[in-house]
Computed example of a mutant assay.
Amino acid sequence: MKFGIVGAITFFIDTGIFYTLKLTILSPKPVTSKVIAVLAATIVSYVLNREWSFRTRGGRRPHHEATLYFVISGIAVGMYSAPLWISRYLLHLQTPFTSRLVEEIADFTSGQIIGLLVGMAFRWWAFRKWVFPAEQPDGRAAPRDRISTP
């Protein structure tokens, strides 16, 4: 539930940045706009997931945890962006091949719905498995209250 709420918050961040960039300074580069938007949302997501969603899981040192989080999120950026890239450059759902309305619907569907679902499912699974596991790397149960270790 908490992961879903964090996802909703970061969806609005992602969507706001994506459309702000796509409709202004990066209008000819929608995939670049999407990558920048996902990166910004990922930073917010890390803080919220670490401090709230997975607070009682994990137990890794903060720098190891952050490294794993951002490596997995880097893979997810490709997963979030791939449907938009496919829609634009393989299916040619962009002007002049289609109308502006079709282009916008295709961009939203592929970038904000399909990409989001694929990336979020991967991140939820990977975060639970590797970043915030129920057990620590040495096999002990994760602490119930997170204590930062140097």
Rank of each mutant, 00 (worst) to 15 (best):
R60W: 01
I9K: 01
Y19T: 02
T67S: 15
S27M: 09
L48A: 08
R57E: 01
I13K: 01
F127T: 09
K129P: 02
A141V: 06
L39H: 05
I17L: 10
F11G: 03
R88N: 01
P96T: 07
G58K: 11
R128P: 03
M1Y: 10
V35Q: 05
S148G: 06
Y69V: 07
V102N: 03
I147A: 11
R88V: 05
G139W: 07
F122R: 02
S87T: 09
A8Q: 12
D145A: 14
P96F: 10
H64G: 04
M120D: 01
S87V: 05
S73C: 09
W124K: 09
D138R: 00
L117H: 00
E51L: 07
D107P: 00
K34H: 14
T56R: 12
G139T: 06
I9Y: 02
T20E: 10
G58L: 12
R57L: 08
D145T: 12
G59R: 10
Q136F: 05
F18D: 08
N49Y: 04
Q112A: 12
W52M: 07
T67A: 15
I75W: 00
Q94L: 03
L117V: 09
F3S: 06
G4H: 04
M120H: 03
G7S: 08
G78V: 11
Q94C: 03
H92R: 11
D107I: 13
V118M: 04
A142T: 04
S53D: 02
Y69H: 05
S110N: 08
P150Q: 04
M120R: 06
G74E: 02
E51G: 09
Q112D: 14
H92L: 15
L84G: 06
H92W: 11
L68S: 08
V77S: 09
K34C: 08
L90H: 07
L48H: 01
I17D: 02
T15M: 03
K22H: 12
A37F: 04
P83E: 02
S99L: 07
Y89T: 11
K34L: 14
I75H: 00
I25H: 13
W124N: 12
L84F: 14
L101T: 07
Q136Y: 06
M1T: 14
G78L: 10
K34R: 15
I17E: 04
R60Y: 10
Y89E: 14
R144M: 07
R61F: 13
D145Y: 11
